[in-house]
């Protein structure tokens, strides 16, 4: 499903170079629920951005579903994100001018899903993340955790083959976190949804199949989880 080979990402700021990732390689198969853990600044978000086609590696090779994504142009990547990927940003990234429901529906609208269908699906997802009663609210009326859950609902609207989530439970209490993790686990189990999730909570690992440990931009360890 995902094949990453020798991925590096260097940020250049004037004369200073930051090696956010240096030579990361791994494979992720269909239906896996993989965690990415590591200290703050170890490159977790950077890696997820690259996997989610939001950023380009400085060097290395990446294929998703057997497609060499590094060969795609900008429009093809956008199209690919729309049709195949779901992404939960660490900072939610909701569209300010849209309501909760519109935020969740937008990617489906863009795909040409019939209105009835996407409205139904959006409401169902909002129900699952516990925000159905807030669907006509705007981003600024929501708490951080609520915005995070909207972002999760939005990431799932087009039934992505790959779901990326960058600390999706960062702002949630244990109960809501468990809720989200159970939702992920259910998607993973019932629909073989492939999920790659950044986390720094050890107890989250109980929901996952495997964990990649990043240290200073390198995969320091990989371990299977006990589920």
């Amino acid at each position: 499903m995902i094949n990453a080979t020798d991925i590096s990402r260097v940020y250049r700021m004037g004369l200073v170079e930051v090696h956010a990732l240096s030579g990361v390689s791994f494979d992720i198969g269909k239906g896996e629920f993989v965690g990415i853990v590591g200290a703050s600044g170890s490159g977790k978000s950077t890696l997820l951005h690259i996997l989610g086609l939001l950023d380009l590696p400085t060097s290395g090779f990446l294929s998703i579903n057997g497609i060499d994504v590094s060969a795609m142009n900008d429009d093809e990547r956008t199209e690919f994100r729309l049709n195949n990927l779901g992404y939960v940003f660490q900072d939610y990234a909701l569209v300010q001018e849209l309501t909760v429901l519109e935020n969740v529906s937008l990617p489906a609208m863009m795909r040409g899903t019939p209105r009835d269908e996407y409205l139904h699906k959006s409401e169902e997802l909002l129900n699952q993340v516990g925000l159905i009663h807030r669907m006509h609210h705007r981003q600024y009326e929501l708490s951080g955790g609520e915005q995070q859950r909207v972002a999760i609902a939005r990431s799932l609207i087009n039934s992505p083959t790959l779901l990326f989530a960058d600390e999706p439970c960062a702002n949630l209490d244990t109960k809501s976190s468990r809720n989200i993790l159970e939702l992920f686990q259910k998607l993973n189990a019932e629909l073989s949804q492939t999920i790659i999730m950044v986390t720094h909570e050890e107890w989250h690992e109980a929901y996952m199949c495997r964990v990649l440990v990043l240290t200073d931009g390198k995969v320091a360890d990989q371990r299977a989880c006990k589920r």
């Binding site: 429009d75 956008t78 729309l82 992404y87 990234a93």
Partner: peptide, 14 residues
């Protein structure tokens, strides 16, 4: 906003 729209798969022409 524009960055977000593009990130979630909205074509840049749109």
């Amino acid at each position: 906003q524009i960055g977000i729209l593009k990130a979630i798969g909205i074509n840049k022409r749109v």
